[in-house]
Design a protein around this nucleic acid. Structure first.
Lengths: 191, 191
DNA sequence: ACCTGAACACCGTTCAAGT
DNA sequence: ACCTGAACACCGTTCAAGT
């Protein structure tokens, strides 16, 4: 995926669009959307900012390329998940871990920054819509496999993602691990 | 509260810090944190940007004043809520409405922008922490009054806010009103 | 095919001077 | 007590010229 972490690159004579995107995702994860700016990125890549405009029309085009890469990465990830043939409780538990364990802090931060953007930016809103549709369909199917009738399975899928995102918006100190695990256990429980 | 909506002010000879803050909250609600910038605000207020620096040391000071105003406003609101002597189900239902009905779209957007900032900004993280502590205490007490033992009442309070915030991060089209109402009903149900 | 360097516009910041 | 206007630095954007 495009937002894989990487060490600050040593000076390279030539870059491609992916190198700019990787640096941009780094900046997004570390400083929010406000940190995704051409000149700071050029400085981080040790190249002139003028060269940015060979790869992208402007800052807006970079943002849209990032949204595209993020959308495709998330959809590919959920489809891969859908392939795994584990017990639905296990798959759901793994998904919950993705949003609550530290291992994916970077991915979570990027996702929340994009969802925040989506409140005022149409392209970001479209990206979120596509990802949500795919995820809710997949997770809804998992709850169906757990034994919930279709309508409740969809409600549970919404509840599941709502809880995971919402929890990550609260002050971490306000959410004891035990309360979080108990909530997830209850969400995943078979009917 | 500082973030009350107001019509674009006609040209006034003199402004105070509150006028700048009001314009800043307008910008925050409409364009996100990236839109809270000195020169655009000056343009909206029809005044020179130089005058901004009479009221605030710099853009950062404006952001921190906004965080302070937001924190105080939210804490005052929750304390006022705590005074109302209605049935806990009713009070919780009203709170849920605040985060899901359109009437408070502006307040919700501002809150989500601040929570997004809090992921990369310490002052914003502190503001969120103070507000969360106050709200979770209040809502935890309401669940206690509903009949939940203290530990579960706290878990429910966390679940309650997590769901409300999380739901507002999903694509609105993905969350049918019926699913949302059903989830809130289940959250508020007595044990 | 990709980058540099210089130019210009825009916005954050400072400050002396105005009222 | 609050604002203007000019100055300067920083960053987005353009583009002719380099490799």
């Amino acid at each position: 995926m495009a937002q894989t972490s990487r060490a600050k690159p040593e000076k390279m004579a030539r870059l491609d669009a992916d190198a700019w995107m990787a640096a941009a995702f780094d900046a997004l994860a570390q400083g929010g959307i406000d940190a995704v700016r051409v000149e700071p990125l050029a400085k981080a890549l040790d190249i002139t900012k003028g060269s940015f405009y060979w790869h992208f029309a402007d800052r807006r085009a970079l943002l849209e390329a990032m949204l595209g890469a993020w959308t495709e990465g998330r959809i590919a990830a959920i489809r891969e998940q859908a392939m795994t043939r584990g017990a639905p409780e296990m798959v759901l538990g793994d998904l919950a871990d993705l949003y609550t364990r530290h291992a994916n802090l970077r991915g979570l931060t990027i996702e929340l920054a994009i969802r925040s953007l989506a409140r005022t930016d149409d392209a970001a809103a479209r990206a979120v819509r596509r990802v949500d549709r795919e995820r809710l369909r997949h997770v809804g199917a998992l709850f169906g496999a757990l034994g919930w009738p279709a309508a409740q399975a969809q409600e549970r899928a919404i509840l599941f993602y709502s809880y995971l995102f919402g929890q990550s918006l609260l002050d971490p100190k306000a959410v004891p691990a035990a309360a979080r695990d108990e909530a997830i256990r209850a969400l995943i429980a078979a009917p």
